Computed example of a mutant assay.
Amino acid sequence: MKKFLVIILICIGAYALITHAPDRFSINSLKSLLQFTKSGLSTSDQAIQNAFDNKLSDIQMGGSGKVIKILPDDNDGSRHQRFIIKLDSSQTLLIAHNIDLAPEIKNLRVGDHINFYGEYEWNAKGGVVHWTHHDPKNRHEGGWLNHGGKLYQ
């Protein structure tokens, strides 16, 4: 049963890659996605690793990690709460959470665990996840953060 579930998850991930980035899809990106069965990483960590390895962007994905650094808020334009998380795979991600559209996580601390869902954008440091909030115009898929059992969207 586990193998069947793994195959289904691989197919879903491959479909997402093909439909969201067909011009950047290659057999190497599919091979990378398949490697998680040997690596012991979660499917979300492997999907993020695949997006990073293949320099993919504009992909909705979720996962979880440990907060390793809290950065000052970005107050240029829309205000964003910013922090860096580390995944189980050791990859780091910058989370940029729009606090003009969603509540700020007031009690966030280094060492805290966070779950996220948003849009991944590639960068050389591991990537950025943004759109961790609702879209008031309903033109973009909404995202969220979950910290301490509370949903921020």
Results as ranks from 00 to 15, higher is better:
1 M>G: 15
4 F>C: 02
6 V>H: 12
6 V>W: 12
7 I>P: 00
11 C>N: 12
11 C>P: 00
12 I>L: 13
14 A>K: 01
16 A>K: 15
17 L>A: 11
17 L>K: 11
17 L>D: 12
20 H>M: 14
22 P>Y: 05
26 S>L: 08
27 I>E: 10
29 S>E: 06
33 L>N: 12
33 L>F: 11
34 L>N: 12
37 T>H: 07
40 G>I: 07
43 T>G: 12
50 N>A: 14
50 N>V: 15
51 A>Q: 04
51 A>W: 09
52 F>K: 08
55 K>L: 02
55 K>H: 12
56 L>D: 01
60 Q>T: 12
63 G>I: 08
63 G>W: 11
64 S>T: 09
66 K>S: 11
66 K>P: 00
67 V>S: 06
68 I>D: 00
69 K>R: 14
73 D>Y: 00
74 D>Y: 11
75 N>V: 09
76 D>L: 13
79 R>A: 13
79 R>M: 13
84 I>D: 03
85 I>D: 01
85 I>N: 01
90 S>L: 13
90 S>I: 02
92 T>G: 07
93 L>Y: 10
95 I>W: 00
95 I>F: 00
95 I>Q: 02
96 A>M: 06
97 H>Q: 05
101 L>D: 06
102 A>V: 03
103 P>G: 09
104 E>P: 08
106 K>W: 01
106 K>M: 06
107 N>T: 15
107 N>R: 12
107 N>Y: 10
111 G>R: 10
113 H>R: 15
114 I>L: 09
114 I>M: 08
115 N>Q: 14
116 F>I: 08
123 N>H: 04
124 A>M: 12
127 G>R: 06
130 H>R: 13
133 H>L: 05
139 R>D: 13
140 H>T: 13
141 E>S: 01
143 G>T: 04
145 L>D: 04
147 H>I: 01
148 G>C: 05
149 G>E: 03
152 Y>K: 00
152 Y>G: 04
153 Q>R: 14
153 Q>F: 04
